[in-house]
Design a protein around this nucleic acid. Structure first.
Length: 431
RNA sequence: UCCUGAGUAGCUCAAUCGGCAGAGCAUCCGGCUGUUAACCGGAGGGUUGUAGGUUCAAGUCCUACCUCAGGAGCCA
């Protein structure tokens, strides 16, 4: 019995007899020759079955199995210039693990709802497979970036008794008779992490019960949130900038095959370089008004405004120092401008929207207490958070990055729903 | 929550002014030794989203509802 080889490594086994374990991706056949396109999760290879050179049982098996039948095939690896991967497999034996008839996702086109209802099968299709491989690589690259720089991973809880940004967009649940919420952000807990470890980060799912029906929103999405003690808003923009440049450069190398499958134009990604423009909120308002937008000082940006700003610069761009009233309670006021806070957003190019939101947090206990009451928040559930200011408070800053928006940008996908294995959206909880 | 659009064969879509509901793919049968979403011939496959209404006649027009998609708001 020859050794089992993964399809991605077949090129290292030319002229050897091997076994491939996988599934039938597609099939083409004529009277005396059949082409079985096989996949095993690591790649695809064309298997060739020639009538008369194999037993009738092998030929009949090749003729009868349908798309996504599970098969174990034995054969010899042949170099062939006609094959996209450079090799194909001359099949000598086929063990049908399960013969499948009527696989729903055919090689022709399908609608969004049909495919999303069958997301558990759609993952096998080459484009979806490539997007999720990129997601997997990006998660590793992101984690490695912070591990390599001395950060400690401090997992934030998913179930919490308090809200970070208002209760209207929280999913609530019952916790042994008490109300509890699915977290909107791990940030508050990361501030505890920063005080304990100096540099901390978390990377996990977060939830927003927003009824957003757009291509840029999910109700469950993954967020990467570093938090750094003694860092200012300018430090955090330095870190976010270096992080994004490093991630994109690594992704271009490590996701090369996937980006080819996805036909992603690499040029806009290859151009990403330091420094990113840092635009004061006041300046961004002027830019929008010059562009003819009806935009008043003090408003928050809509999707259209972000697109105008990102197209104006053609690179990732930081907008910093926002009006106090449009930002959460924990943001540090600008010492020079009491109507502003030290927050910053990074807007991605190519219309992918806000990729990062961050800034400097309030470290003064009295100020924080005052802000809590100004926002109408109860102080009791925040006592542990207040403790961080009572016992050794220091200036600190951090940011949050939406993983799915990063994946969408890198892969060039228009919709976030394809960037996560099983998307959760308004009106979709299955599969 | 609001605005716009779409629901016809398993899937993707046609159907002119309101006048016999059709094609490609998939499935089944047959053919083909180099195919790359293979190709060629044949067959089966329909309560046109749901409920009403107008009409000699409704996929098509009217009303309500349901579902999906795109966008707005909000955000990462």
């Amino acid at each position: 019995m020859p050794a089992r080889v993964y399809i991605e490594s077949l090129a290292d086994h030319v002229d050897a007899d091997v076994v491939v374990k996988g599934w039938l991706y597609n099939k083409r056949s004529s009277g005396k020759i059949a082409f079985l396109e096989l996949r095993d999760g690591t790649g695809r290879v064309q298997g060739v079955v020639v009538r008369g050179k194999v037993g009738d049982d092998v030929w009949n098996a090749a003729e009868e199995i349908g798309q996504e039948s599970s098969v174990i095939v034995a054969g010899r690896v042949k170099a062939d210039e006609r094959a996209p991967s450079g090799v194909e497999l001359t099949i000598s034996a086929i063990e049908v693990v399960q013969a499948v008839d009527g696989y729903p996702i055919t090689p022709k086109e399908h609608g969004t709802e049909f495919l999303m209802d069958r997301r558990h099968l759609w993952l096998r299709s080459s484009q979806q497979h490539a997007v999720l491989r990129v997601r997997s690589q990006l998660e590793k690259i992101c984690r490695d970036y912070f591990y390599e720089r001395g950060y400690t991973l401090v997992d934030s809880p998913v179930l919490t008794p308090l809200s970070v940004e208002g209760t209207t967009t929280l999913f609530s649940t019952d916790y042994f008779g008490r109300p509890a919420y699915l977290t909107q952000s791990g940030q508050l807990y990361q501030e505890a992490g920063a005080m304990a470890f100096g540099k901390a980060f978390c990377f996990g799912p977060t939830f927003r019960a927003e009824k957003s029906k757009t291509r840029r929103h999910l109700t469950e999405f993954w967020m990467l949130e570093p938090e750094i003690a003694y860092a200012t808003i300018d430090d955090v923009m330095d870190i976010a900038e270096d992080f994004i440049v490093t991630v994109i450069q690594k992704a271009l190398v490590e996701c090369d095959a996937e980006l080819t499958t996805l036909q992603r134009d690499r040029a806009p990604l290859e151009q990403i370089a330091k420094p990113f423009p840092r635009v004061h909120y006041d300046e961004s308002v002027e830019l929008l008004q010059t562009a003819g937008e009806d935009f008043e000082w003090g408003s928050d940006f809509g999707a259209g405004h972000e697109t105008i700003l990102s197209e104006h610069f053609g690179t990732p761009v930081f907008i910093n120092r926002f009006p106090t009233k449009i930002k959460p309670f924990y943001m540090e006021p600008d010492a020079d401008r009491p109507d502003l806070v030290l927050g910053c957003d990074l807007i991605a190019p190519e219309g992918y929207g806000e990729l990062i939101g961050g800034g400097q947090r309030i470290h003064d206990p009295d100020l924080l207490e005052r802000k809590l009451s100004e926002h109408g928040l109860p102080t009791e559930p925040y006592q542990w958070y207040m403790d961080l200011r009572r016992y050794g408070t220091v200036p600190h800053s951090g940011f949050g990055m939406g993983l799915e928006r990063l994946v969408a940008w890198v892969t060039g996908r228009p919709h976030l729903r394809e960037t996560i294995p099983f998307p959760r959206m308004v009106g979709r909880l299955e599969p």
